[in-house]
Write a protein that binds this DNA or RNA. Structure first.
Lengths: 122, 122
DNA sequence: CTGAATCCCTGCCGATACTG
DNA sequence: CAGTATCGGCAGGGATTCAG
């Protein structure tokens, strides 16, 4: 049991599946990074953690975010199963965006990112 | 105390400092994402979680990673305080790369990323 | 052995304009 | 209200070459 510098709770890095010598798209870490990647993405998720929003509510909350990028991000988050779109019939068009259960589970992940980023340098 | 959909342990999203309406470089989440951003970055960190490595050891472990990107990644990780370089006098040049204490604290972060990415879709 | 410098190509993202 | 279409600038990163 040679050089196990520190104990790891699960999966990392002693998991048998954790032996990628190259960036594999099916690596769990890559999957999560891909879901969160891109400018504004984490902010959109954080906004939706507060509750569901309409398109224009998101745009108002995230000042500086353009239409193109917002729809790109929403499409990305829907594709990764983080967000679901609820379109209701009638006029004017009413669309609501909300986190899926999977999306809500990003809370602890963002929390871990927040915690590390808040820690002092050394 | 209107619509608090779920309790949050700390910082997110009810932290007073968590009100950025735009991508702020000083946001803790952005700091962590910036440290981990870029292809190969998480794999380099994961490799170093196993112990310190020489330059060529890293290159051997990460098949397909080019010199340019590896030195870019090491510079990035050193700049963000994740990795430290230990250069020893003599010939041939011997250099060792190891995680700083701060870098070792990325373990739980990668674990959180891994966990989310391993979860079933719904 | 340990990198830095260069070249080039691709994809991201911001701005603007337009549609159902 | 809720998006899509198009374009252009710029940075990321892969291959190759050169240097300490």
């Amino acid at each position: 049991m040679a050089h196990r510098t520190v104990g790891h709770p699960a999966g990392l890095p002693d998991d048998p599946h954790a032996n990628a010598g190259a960036p594999a798209p099916d690596c769990p870490v890559e999957i999560t990074m891909a879901a969160l990647q891109g400018r504004w993405t984490t902010l959109v998720v954080r906004e939706l953690l507060r509750g569901d929003h309409s398109y224009s509510e998101l745009r108002a909350a995230l000042t500086g975010l353009s239409d193109k990028v917002l729809s790109d991000r929403l499409a990305q988050l829907i594709a990764t199963g983080v967000v679901e779109r609820d379109r209701r019939a009638g006029w004017p068009p009413r669309v609501r965006y909300a986190l899926t259960p999977r999306g809500r589970r990003l809370g602890p992940v963002l929390q871990a990112l927040w915690d590390w980023g808040s820690q002092p340098e050394h």
